[in-house]
Design a binder for these strands. Structure first.
Length: 501
RNA sequence: GAGUCGUUAGCUCAGUCGGUAGAGCAGUUGCCUUUUAAGCAACGGGCCGUGGGUUCAAGUCCCACACGGCUCACCA
């Protein structure tokens, strides 16, 4: 079948040259090749054989292997050639000699193979003069031809835009990037393992929601054609998970994507991964303990320590983490006692003006309090810190604090100036809950993030939800901290990008 | 959304005062039978992000736009 290659030729001279080499192969994309050892397995085989080999022996162990991987370095020296292949386990050197392979096969390797191609090679293991374990190749086959040249072998791929858009190039040429995402995977696994170990049940709740809720954020809107109805991509799974507590599950969690229609930054991606868990008969104090135990445990497991370097500063995740009352935290940083203006946004605003605080005007007292928190407290937090007891009006799903009815039993966790978690003693009184939703509606015209009324959720609470502690953890941000990546884009495989052109 | 910096060969980067577009890696050809960022020699490879403008002459100066980074804003 003749094919029009003009499209591919536009990629440049090197693509054209590689395409012309395809004729040297029966097929450049065989259905399968024989691979019996990974690079690391092959290396271990020889190391183990050497360890038991008699030291006075004249000959050496002979171990046949069949390996395969991407060609990442080729050094042809006349009638002999060295190359490095890279597979999922690591790098391995292969060695080809014209004497052993025959003129035709050796020439075929020299003229037909390029960096980036996948090769399968069979042969026996040996050590070079320099001591590197290598495969002395007796036979080889092309596994897959790469018709586009790879990024530069020494510097790797640097251009950030290309790294994010063509993540496969980033991964294939930057081993440290692969390590970050492998660590991310492990962090999520360990999070599941911890929660499973505590008896939590992993569940799945809707991404498409007729009413969005559980957080203060603007949603993405979509449409169901057959039902002709507006749907929102979830900003949180909170209200569904609590319905499950009503239903009788006592410990549930979900790790899923949330979608928030807001700005993009080094700390925000429009879709991000959230872990939320709900625990009957627990409260927000219990969730603090769970949070520090879980994250310190994960850090210990993957880093071998509960202290970690992030962005040039040492963070200490060793429990117990600092617990700081919100009112105290604000007083400490601004000398404002927010209770002196309790409930009066104008009075608090006047106080801020008097002290020349750099805060933006807010529609309510509670929002202004969290604004002050965001501007004056959060940026100064380095080590993991629980800020607890939040204004009631910014926490419509949270239970009032019996000791201080102006506040709710809620905390947020901050590390390195970044919020990584949010938790409540969950409000379970349906009458109060409905009133709180209604109260949100009074500022809805001024506040795009006001929580919507959810009658179905109130109905669920009418059946009775036991006292419950709930927690949300921003998984991407935890990964940032534990992998020392200051930008969320470096822990999300395919971060959001504007389309080209 | 605002400010700011960036966009040059497949990749990493130079490019002076506005005067014929450069290097390393990668590629092609030749030499080279234990190299490892192999080495030596020769050669090929450019929409200088896009579109306007100034100028005898623009990669370079001016304007607009696109995309990206950072800071701020928005936001948890």
């Amino acid at each position: 079948m003749e094919q029009d290659l003009t499209y591919f030729y536009e990629f440049g001279e090197q693509v054209e040259q590689r395409i012309s080499k395809l004729a040297q192969f029966e097929t450049a994309y065989p259905p399968r090749v024989k691979r019996q050892h990974t690079s690391t397995q092959a290396i271990k085989l020889l190391e183990m054989a050497e360890a038991t080999w008699p030291t006075d022996s004249a000959d050496k162990p002979h171990i046949d292997v069949a390996v395969a991987g991407r060609l990442v370095g080729i050094r042809v020296m006349g009638k002999t050639a060295f190359a490095h292949i890279e597979d999922g386990s690591g790098r391995l050197q292969i060695y080809l000699r014209q004497n052993d392979l025959g003129d035709e096969a050796y020439h075929h390797f020299k003229k037909g193979f390029d960096l980036g191609d996948f090769i399968a090679a069979q042969g026996y293991l040996f050590r070079t003069k320099m001591g590197e374990i290598s495969v002395h190749v007796t036979d080889f086959q092309l596994a897959t031809k790469a018709i586009h040249p790879p990024p530069e072998k020494w510097h790797g791929l640097k251009d950030l835009e290309t790294r994010y858009r063509q993540r496969y190039l980033d991964l294939s040429s930057n081993a440290e990037v692969r390590a970050v995402f492998a660590k991310r995977s492990k962090i999520v696994t360990l999070m599941r393992r911890y929660l499973d170990g505590q008896g939590f049940l992993e569940v799945e709740t809707p991404t498409l929601q007729p009413i969005y809720g559980g957080a203060m954020a603007r949603p993405f809107v979509t449409h169901h054609n057959a039902l002709d109805m507006r749907l929102y991509l979830r900003i949180s799974d909170e209200l569904y998970l609590k319905r499950l507590i009503v239903g009788g599950f006592e410990k549930v969690y979900e790790i899923c994507k949330d979608f928030r229609n807001e700005g993009i930054s080094t700390k925000h991606n429009p879709e991000f991964t959230m872990m939320e868990c709900y625990w009957a008969y627990a409260d927000y104090q219990d969730m603090m303990t769970l949070t520090e135990q879980m994250i310190a445990g994960i850090a210990q497991e993957i880093l071998g320590a509960t202290q970690v370097m992030f962005n040039g500063q040492l963070l200490d995740f060793t429990p117990p983490w600092r617990r700081l009352n919100l009112v105290e935290a604000i007083r400490e940083k601004t000398e404002i006692d927010i209770f002196e203006t309790y409930g009066d946004v104008d009075a608090l605003w006047a106080e801020c003006q008097k002290l020349k605080l750099k805060v933006a005007p807010q529609p309510s007292w509670g929002k202004l309090v969290t604004e002050i928190l965001g501007e004056y407290v959060e940026p100064g937090i380095t080590h993991p810190t629980f800020i607890y007891n939040y204004p009631i009006e910014v926490s419509p799903l949270s239970k009032q604090n019996p000791a201080d009815p102006r506040m709710v039993e809620r905390f947020e966790v901050f590390v390195a100036g970044m919020e990584i978690g949010n938790a409540y003693s969950e409000l379970n009184d349906p009458i109060t809950q409905r009133a709180r939703f209604l109260q949100q509606q009074t500022t809805a015209d001024k506040d795009a993030e006001a929580h919507a009324m959810d009658e179905d959720y109130v109905f669920a609470l009418m059946q009775g939800m036991p006292p419950t502690g709930g927690l949300g953890i921003g998984v991407d941000r935890v990964v940032m901290l534990l992998t020392d990546q200051p930008s969320i884009r470096d822990v999300i495989l395919f971060p959001h990008m504007r389309p080209r052109e």
